[in-house]
Amino acid sequence: MSAPGLAYGPLGDHCAHLCVDMQRLFAEPSEWATPWITRVLPRIVSLAERYPSQTIFTRFLPARSPGQGAGTWKRYYERWASMTIDRIGEEMIELLPPLAACCPPAVVVDKHIYSPWPEGHLHTLLSSRRIDTLVITGGETDVCVLATVLGAIDIGYRVVLVTDALCSSSDATHDALMTVYHQRFAQQVETVEMETVLSSWT
């Protein structure tokens, strides 16, 4: 029998919580600040603290200095020179403290682009743990979460997107992406609130 809100049944042993880019550089005053990251943080903490050994955090690592990166990423870091590691400091790439406190047993996978999949480390880790279902939280809904979700769909993971544990710096594109997830990916993405996840993961 399906759990309420979960079209394909309750969550179980082969499930992981994948938390996307909940880092200081997006929470503290900067050009990349996501104002309502603090609104969703308590919900994400509640899930990470309940299942720390099944939680994986991704971190987005900017280029070290302006103009680094391949192809259009070079232009990107010329535009966002103020957000390179040499400018913001190493400490700004760290997870937000309540989430960092879950590590270990939670683990961190670093990435240098929006998607966590091309570099291969995340998929290797999930395969070694026989994970087939991902409960996804974090930010931003319309950038790195989007890249994470689409890659997971392509690989064939069951994707459970926690709607009240996502954040973006743009309300308009957050809302637009939620509509896309509901209307265009309903066969492959289940969208539920955190209460459903906490009551359905056994």
Rank of each mutant, 00 (worst) to 15 (best):
A3W: 11
L6V: 09
A7P: 02
A7V: 08
G9V: 10
G9Q: 09
A16R: 03
D21F: 09
R24A: 15
F26A: 05
F26R: 02
E28T: 13
P29L: 08
A33D: 02
A33T: 15
P35H: 06
W36N: 15
I37P: 00
T38A: 13
V40I: 15
V45Y: 09
Q54N: 07
T55F: 03
I56M: 12
F57I: 05
T58W: 10
F60Y: 08
L61P: 00
R64Q: 12
S65A: 13
G67A: 04
G67W: 06
T72Q: 13
W73Y: 14
K74W: 03
R75P: 04
Y76I: 06
Y77A: 13
Y77M: 14
Y77E: 14
R79D: 10
W80M: 12
T84D: 01
I85H: 00
D86E: 14
G89E: 00
E91F: 07
E94I: 04
A101V: 09
A101M: 11
C102R: 00
C103Q: 09
V107R: 12
V108E: 06
V108T: 10
D110C: 01
K111E: 00
H112G: 08
H112F: 14
I113Q: 13
W117K: 13
W117A: 06
G120W: 05
H121N: 11
L122W: 11
L126M: 02
R129F: 06
D132I: 01
T133R: 01
L134S: 02
G139A: 14
T141R: 03
D142Y: 00
D142H: 10
V143G: 01
V143D: 03
V143H: 04
V145W: 04
L146Y: 11
L146H: 15
L146P: 00
G151A: 07
A152G: 06
I153P: 01
R158W: 07
L161V: 02
V162M: 06
A165M: 03
L166E: 01
C167N: 05
T173F: 03
A176G: 02
L177K: 10
T179I: 14
V180D: 05
A186N: 10
Q187P: 06
Q187Y: 12
Q187K: 15
V189P: 00
V189Y: 08
T191R: 15
T191F: 07
T191E: 13
V192L: 10
E193C: 07
T196R: 07
V197E: 07
V197T: 05
S199Y: 05
S199D: 15
S199L: 12
S200M: 03
S200C: 10
W201G: 05
W201H: 11
W201V: 06
T202N: 12
